[in-house]
Simulated scan of single mutants.
Amino acid sequence: MEPGNSTHISKFLLLGFSEEPKLQPLIFGLILPCTSSLCLELLIILAASSDSHLHSPMYFFLCNLSFVDICFTSTTIPKMLWNIQTQNQLITYKGCITQIYFYIHFAGLDIFLLTVMAYDRFVAICDPLHYMLIMNPQLCGLLVLVSWVMCAMYSLLHSLMVLQLSFCIDLEIPHFFCEIKQVVQLACSDTFLNNMVMHFGAGLLGGSTLAGILYSYSKIISSICRNSSTQGKHKAFSTCVSHLSVVSLFYCTSLGVYLSPFATHSSQSSATAALMYTVVTPMLNPFIYSLRNKDIRRALKGFSGMETFTKGAFVLRLKKCMV
């Protein structure tokens, strides 16, 4: 294929884990069962929506995070599993651009929602008397809406910039999905602007949100330390530990991929490490929240019990009709 405009490109080749063919069945066998956690994410959304006790800002943001995690995982994992199963590593040009858009969009939403949830915990602990007044439904909806709009614009910018690139003969992406950095490196045309926007955007997005989270938790810790009640300290800490675990897991794995020396020198190692924040982290989120949160566990039990009751009532009515 001759170098030229990117519109002439028809397909890319996702190398993924092809360098280790013996590992592919193992990866497939490990990842496929993990997708069952997506059902738990959906159950959390349904349970929190059906339980009136969970109609609060914290669970509103948790439901949004669960939905984003489902979308984030669905952006890359189905294609990866399909490629391993069929031994077909091709992805169309349009499919690659689409994957770049949704990957950046939902990854950014994950970061924004974790930041918003940190602010929610900050208000709840540091100013509990005015919590419901500050975190009113209008503000909560506005925070989520702004997050969606900003991430949509940010991912659209990157996608449009990739569309302007021209690509060479070598169209092999050393990853299991169309990671934007790897795609840009394949271009024959000048990529200075793309790289500048990528680094500036990642620094601004990641740095500002991380600073917001750290600031919120510094205030939370300061407030907890001033609380003389041991029971109050334990209650305040327990409301934050789940969110803090998710934040630590997400940031440590994603920063580890891009900042560690082996990730920059070995594309195979980078692809393996990327599994952590694209697959493992979103799938661990529902377990972290559901196992540590009594309200979520109660809502899940209530929701499953409600389903059982509904089925029982339906069978009973059916028997009456038959009689």
Rank of each mutant, 00 (worst) to 15 (best):
F167E: 01
G206A: 06
Q231P: 00
I27A: 07
E179W: 11
V183W: 02
S223P: 01
I296Y: 02
S254C: 08
D120Q: 14
S37I: 06
H199P: 00
M80N: 04
F61I: 00
S242C: 04
G203V: 01
N293I: 00
S267K: 13
L163N: 13
C34E: 10
C240H: 01
A299I: 02
M306P: 00
M153D: 08
Y258M: 11
Y251S: 02
Q99P: 05
I100V: 15
S74G: 09
F28A: 08
L65Y: 02
C39M: 13
E2V: 10
A124R: 06
L133I: 14
N136I: 11
I97H: 05
N194W: 08
C96S: 12
P33V: 08
F102V: 08
Q85G: 06
C151F: 00
M80F: 03
A187H: 04
H8D: 09
F200Y: 13
I134L: 09
I224Y: 12
C321F: 15
S74Q: 06
C126Q: 04
N194M: 14
H265F: 11
I296R: 03
M196Q: 09
I97S: 03
M198D: 07
G206H: 06
V146H: 06
F112I: 07
C34Q: 12
G256W: 00
T310V: 10
I44E: 03
G16T: 02
L156C: 12
S216T: 05
K320E: 14
M135L: 13
S245D: 03
G108R: 05
I77D: 04
P3K: 14
S189I: 07
K219F: 13
F67C: 01
G256D: 03
S56T: 15
T310R: 12
V247N: 01
L210H: 07
V197Q: 03
P174M: 11
K233I: 04
G16Y: 00
A271S: 13
G305E: 03
L30F: 08
